[in-house]
Amino acid sequence: MKKFTTEKGLVMPLDRANVDTDYIIPKQFLKSIKRTGFGKNLFDEARYLDKGLPDQECTGRPLNPDFVANQPRYQGASILLARENFGCGSSREHAPWALDDFGIRCVIAPSYADIFFNNCVKNGILLIVLDEKVVDQLFKETAATPGFNLNVDLAAQTLTKPDGSVIKFEVEPSRKHILLNGLDDIGLTMQHADAIRAFEKSYQVKAPWLFS
């Protein structure tokens, strides 16, 4: 799995609460049987003025000039600044795949939906939770400062602003460990194969109808 250690990048603000996974990647693109290529359809309905189709070339499509991802100052952004309950809705992992393929390595918001949160960890995307007031301040600074960037250091759990000031953030130790080392979850669980077999054996005695 992809590692996350540090990321210095341009911040793109998405000023909208409850951004759902349909908004992140609309359903017509879920017909793909691949994990890659979703970046051009990230935020498709907000980003383009026409209706997007699967396997469509997107370079000639009409862009919504008001949408943040289309504004010249945010081109190349790798950090997304968002509002509360980001990623709510469906379990589609295509949402983090689209963010990753677009180039987003880190999201900062006051809160996230649970399934989306897990899905991001599996794809080496760091989701940072900060207090609503701190996020609000970052929105203001991003708007006021062209080229506003942040330096994210997961090991130190810090965000450093262009002026050198530092914001600390919390991260669950298990997630931090997985992200820093880019660990393969399945491989890790396989190390407990004996414990799983032992569990199955005793469980089968208690609930034989689940094994017949």
């Binding site: 379990s91 992992e93 899905n119 794809n123 890790l188 799983i196």
Partner: peptide, 23 residues
Amino acid sequence: AHGIGTSEVEHVLATQCLVQKKA
């Protein structure tokens, strides 16, 4: 019963388990 992402689908297929934090 709850929803999972595709990486977890693969994980369950391979191990019949999930790594979870209690809600």
